[in-house]
């Protein structure tokens, strides 16, 4: 078991390393993006650019520049932006992280509640009218582009109806929970619902499939033979087993979202989270910030993967060999 965990962690570190190299190479391969020229300003003379290039260590060989960047990012933690010079990358990320966490945590509660309820109701009523209706709504939710849904929500709440029934919806933006919990929730409610729609659809569908499978298992038949009520069987027995894959799925999705996969939702609603930070730094080709944000995001994805894998290995010894 320990061996498995160690192997898993080593490969996680390897993945992180490769991603850092990949990001680094992609951006130094981009033509027309000489960081020195951009730092120096709009019409700096060649001498000035050379001076900046030297001061920032941009005249060193690529591997050394990579190592320097990693050193500044992880060890010294003083890596600073190429665009907002002096603005440190690490604090930028630590400031953006709570926004993303607020968005994702709130949305997760909503999608778990709706997804699980929907899945259970559909499974309990399989073959009846309500089942395909719920499943169709699930498919529709999965099929809507998240950014478009967000824009439509903006159009409805900030456009023509803003002066009547949606007057309570504040303009997009973020208010920290420490400043005003009410405003925090009010500003996030629309982003929560938008982000949750997609995942609620997925979870309802997956859970229904799991439940239907479980209801055909032997232990359920046994329970039925004992004369337990159908509702009790569904909630007490089938749901309990079916939640395991849901929880592992949740682990992966939550990790990815915290890591910046909520990018489009953050962009559309102007929430200054990790996704928006990544997006703006990509637009500015601000390599240090991109590197920081991508490493941060990859960390959560890799961590979530590793945790889920290791948890599975505990539950199912066969996995350890693989």
């Amino acid at each position: 078991m320990l061996g498995f965990i160690i192997r898993r962690l080593i490969s996680a570190i390897l993945v992180m390393f490769s991603i850092s190299v990949l990001v680094f190479l992609i951006f130094f391969a981009t033509p027309g993006v000489d960081p020195a020229a951009r730092i120096a300003g709009r019409s700096a003379s060649p001498a000035i650019i050379a001076q900046v290039r030297h001061a920032f260590g941009l005249d060193r060989p690529l591997p050394i520049r990579w190592a320097l960047m990693m050193d500044h990012l992880f060890i010294k933690q003083d890596l600073s932006s190429y665009v907002n010079i002096g603005s440190r990358v690490v604090p930028q990320i630590t400031q953006a992280a709570p926004v993303t966490l607020s968005l994702v945590a709130g949305a997760a509660v909503i999608w778990m509640v709706i997804g699980v309820t929907g899945g259970v109701i559909a499974a309990a009523n399989r073959g009846k009218f309500i089942d395909p209706v719920i499943m169709f709504i699930g498919i529709a939710a999965v099929s809507v582009p998240a950014y478009w849904l967000g824009e439509v929500v903006n159009l409805i709440t900030q456009g023509g109806l803003h002066h009547s029934i949606f007057a309570w919806v504040p303009p997009s933006g973020y208010v920290p929970i420490t400043q005003s919990p009410g405003q925090w929730a009010l500003h996030l409610i629309m982003p929560w619902l938008t982000l949750a729609a997609l995942y609620a659809g997925i979870y309802a569908r997956v859970l229904r499939a799991e439940l239907v499978n479980a209801l055909n298992e032997d232990y359920v038949r046994t329970a039925r033979a004992k004369g337990l009520s159908e509702r009790r069987i569904l909630i007490r027995h089938a749901l309990r087993c079916s939640l395991i894959p849901i929880v592992s799925l949740f682990g992966l999705d939550f990790g990815a979202l915290i890591g910046g996969a909520a990018l489009l939702t953050e962009v559309v609603f102007g929430l200054p989270g990790v996704g928006l930070l990544t997006y703006t730094s990509l637009q500015n080709l601000d390599l240090p910030v991109i590197m920081g944000a991508v490493m941060y995001g990859a960390f959560f994805v890799v961590l979530a993967n590793a945790v889920v894998d290791i948890a599975y290995a505990f539950l199912d010894p066969r996995v350890r060999i693989a």
């Binding site: 992609i26 990859a298 993967n305």
Partner: peptide, 22 residues
């Protein structure tokens, strides 16, 4: 693993930025 852990849109955006220019 690497492609998986590299958030989808980030990978796509990074690649596009490079490829669209050159």
């Amino acid at each position: 693993d690497i492609v998986w852990a590299f958030p989808v849109y980030l990978l796509a955006i990074s690649l596009s930025v490079v490829l669209l220019t050159s």
